[in-house]
Design a protein around this nucleic acid. Structure first.
Lengths: 150, 150
DNA sequence: TTAGATGAGTTTCATTATGAAACTCATTGC
DNA sequence: GCAATGAGTTTCATAATGAAACTCATCTAA
């Protein structure tokens, strides 16, 4: 496909975020990374992704500072891919996607994996709220645009 | 590209969510829809997306129940595309992406659009927390997998 | 009423991204 | 030393994308 227009200079943070991680595989790789995967073959097996594509995506995610490589324990050339702090900050995005998926993409009673607090086993949820802690939904919010500079 | 493996039957809600909206344009269209856009040409101008692709994406988003079409005011064949309840429930996903983008993809002091509460003007934020309201981060959470059935 | 404008797509065509499978190396296990 | 494994890269066919041209129907102005 003809090179897509880049949104890295868009003033909308969502657009830039999608520019960075909005392609099909990247967030799935990040999901697996949150799930503890670190090795090429783990991702490959889990996602069923072609190796060349996985290779390219890991390179891109690393270049963008979402993953970082560390030499694997057994001294060879093997690498491990770990989430950076920037990558771990995608946690709310993953939770939001998960929550929406649970709400709308599963039949009533259909089994699915769950996100729980490690210590208590309690379910993890996500809320949008104002600075002072009141929950808010889409209708109560609005985008404050940046005026065109020019 | 060879038809991608579908994740609609994956037991992971995030995977299903990405299967539904994980392609490059869909979330950008949804973002614009949250921003009040409803018409084909509005999306087209805003995103710079090719018309055939936009047409296909609007059709897919509609088929998936994220958008719905309503006849436009002036009686013609024109349509408006509006978010359904399911589509509006993507609000936290958009906020999460935005928040991450703000944190990591803007230089200090660089201008960006902001999400604010309509009435108070206060900034909107997003927190991941347990059922009983304590904030939690990635390290404190874990995925509870569904055992393989078979 | 008729000749443009728009709006909303669809078709066509060239280009790029992707997936599958084969291939390459280095390391590890035996 | 020799096969097996891990981590990629290369090659090739094919599907998705983008751009531009084309199609209709409706709206507008004269």
């Amino acid at each position: 496909m003809v090179k897509r227009r880049s949104l890295v200079s868009d003033y909308c943070p969502s657009a830039r975020a999608l520019d960075a991680i909005g392609d099909w595989w990247s967030l799935l790789i990040v999901r697996d990374a949150f799930d503890g995967m670190t090795r090429f073959s783990e991702f490959q097996k889990s996602l069923g992704i072609a190796r060349n594509i996985l290779s390219e995506r890991l390179r891109t995610l690393t270049a963008r500072g979402i993953l970082e490589t560390v030499p694997a324990a057994a001294g060879g050339i093997r690498l491990e891919y770990r989430l950076t702090a920037k990558g771990r900050d995608l946690f709310p995005v993953m939770v939001a996607l998960r929550q929406w998926g649970e709400q709308h993409l599963f039949a009533p009673g259909e089994r699915h994996s769950s996100l729980i607090e490690r210590d208590s086993g309690r379910k993890v949820t996500l809320t949008v709220q104002t600075e002072d802690g009141r929950p808010i939904d889409a209708d109560g919010a609005m985008i404050l645009k940046v005026p065109e500079t020019g």
